Structures are given as C-alpha cells and as structure tokens.
Computed example of a mutant assay.
Amino acid sequence: MTRVLVVDDQVLIRVGLAALLRAAPGMEVVGEAAGGAEAVALAAAERPDIVLMDIRMPGMDGITATGRILAEATEPAPRIIILTTFDLDEYVYAALRAGAAGFLLKDTPPERLLAAVETVAAGDMLFAPSVVCRLIEAYAHRAADKVAPPPGLDPLTTRELDVLRLVGQGLSNPEIAGRLVVSVATVKTHLNRTMAKLNLSSRAQAVVLAYESGLVVPGGAG
C-alpha cells in the first residue's frame, strides 16, 4: 500500500487529488494539508511514502516545505512530487535542488498521475533525466548568484565522479554501465555511495549538483 500526503492550498484541487488516490487500488491518503507548515507536521506524524506538494502556497511554500520534510525525516524519507502549472519553472528547479523526486503538471490526466505516483514510489525519477537536464540547463546559471555554493566533491573517488558526471548528463543506470563497462549493480553502488557522501536525497538533486559544481557544463558534456 502506497501512503500519500496531498498538499495544495486550493481546496478543490486538494480534495480532487485525494479522492482520485483513494479510489485507486494500492493507494492510501494519509492526510491533506493546505499549506507548507501543515505539510511538514503531517509528514512527520504520518510518515507517508509519497508527498504530492503544491509549489506556490501562501506562508511556507512548497520548496521550503520540501527541504524541511526531507531534513527532518527518518529513513526511509518520503519521496516528494512537486505539483506545478509550468514544466519550465524556476521554482521547480529550486524544488529539485531541495531534493524533490520530480514534478508533475496540474493538468496531467488522472491515469498518468496515478502512474507517476507508482513510478516514484518504486524509487524512480518521475520524468526522464533529459527533461530534468533541460530544466537545470535553463536555470543553473541564473541560480549561481542566488544560492550557497554546492558541497565540494573531494570525498568522491574517481569512479564516483565518473558516475555523477554521467548522471548529470542525463544517462540512465544501464547507459552509464555501458559507458563505463561495468554492471548496473556497480553503477547503483557508486551512485548510492556518492549520494550518501554528499547528503543527497534524490537523483534529481544529484543532477543539480553535477551542474552547480561545474562537473557538467550547460550545453556541453562537462
């Protein structure tokens, strides 16, 4: 059973999403929140598997709430899907940087929304890495002067750097395995160690860091 927390300040959207999820087999709605602060409290109390998080809300917005939830969560941390109106949105970039697992447009058909929740619950990114890379290329250079520098990559081994660079370029684990001539299991091990060393909570966050650290250059191979 996939436990979902729904967060949106618009009551019709929130109630509609909750009703859709409750009607789907294998889904359980553990709470509904109208704002970021309420979402943080409910996430701590209910420990959902998935959080559907509206990005623009009065008070604590979805970006801040995403960071708070992930920072305060016990393992396994919930995976957060950002709900937005535009797929190329600077707020979405910031949410991915905070550790969100992906983003979903609010006009997504119901069947695709349910499939998206299942995809993220299974541990995958919501959208193809190439879509995330397009978003990051659009905003990484703009964000450089607005955010703290990313953590250094000194703790990483040469092979971990190779894996992070290829993740940043949008390659899947099988594609990385083929490029480095290793098994997919080995790629997963290197990526898991990299994320643990750098305190990253999602693959999308690893892509962001690859750009912000200069390991991958927007428009180039890095």
Rank of each mutant, 00 (worst) to 15 (best):
M53R: 05
I55P: 03
I55S: 06
M57K: 04
M57L: 10
P58M: 11
M60P: 01
M60I: 05
G62R: 00
G62K: 04
A65C: 08
T66C: 09
T66Q: 11
G67P: 00
G67R: 11
G67I: 02
G67A: 12
I69L: 06
L70N: 01
A71R: 14
A71H: 13
A73Q: 04
T74W: 14
E75W: 08
P76F: 12
A77Q: 11
P78T: 08
P78L: 07
P78G: 09
I82Q: 06
I82P: 02
T84P: 10
T85N: 14
F86V: 06
L88R: 15
E90V: 10
Y91W: 07
Y91Q: 13
V92I: 09
V92E: 04
V92K: 03
L96T: 00
A98S: 13
A98P: 00
G99S: 05
A101M: 09
G102K: 11
F103E: 06
L104R: 05
L104D: 05
K106G: 04
T108E: 14
T108H: 09
P109V: 05
P110G: 10
E111A: 15
R112L: 15
L113G: 00
A115D: 14
A115P: 01
V117N: 05
E118G: 10
E118P: 01
E118Q: 13
V120K: 03
V120D: 02
A121G: 04
G123Q: 07
M125C: 04
M125L: 05
L126D: 02
L126Y: 01
S130E: 14
V132H: 05
V132I: 14
C133F: 00
R134H: 10
R134K: 15
R134Q: 13
R134T: 06
L135T: 00
L135S: 01
A138L: 12
Y139W: 10
R142Q: 13
R142T: 08
R142F: 02
A144Y: 10
A144G: 12
D145S: 14
D145M: 11
V147Y: 14
V147R: 15
V147G: 11
A148D: 14
A148F: 06
P151G: 12
P151Y: 05
G152F: 09
G152I: 10
P155S: 12
T157V: 08
R159A: 15
R159M: 15
E160T: 02
E160S: 04
L161V: 09
L161F: 07
L161K: 12
V163E: 06
V163C: 08
L164T: 00
L164P: 01
G168Y: 00
L171V: 00
S172N: 06
N173S: 11
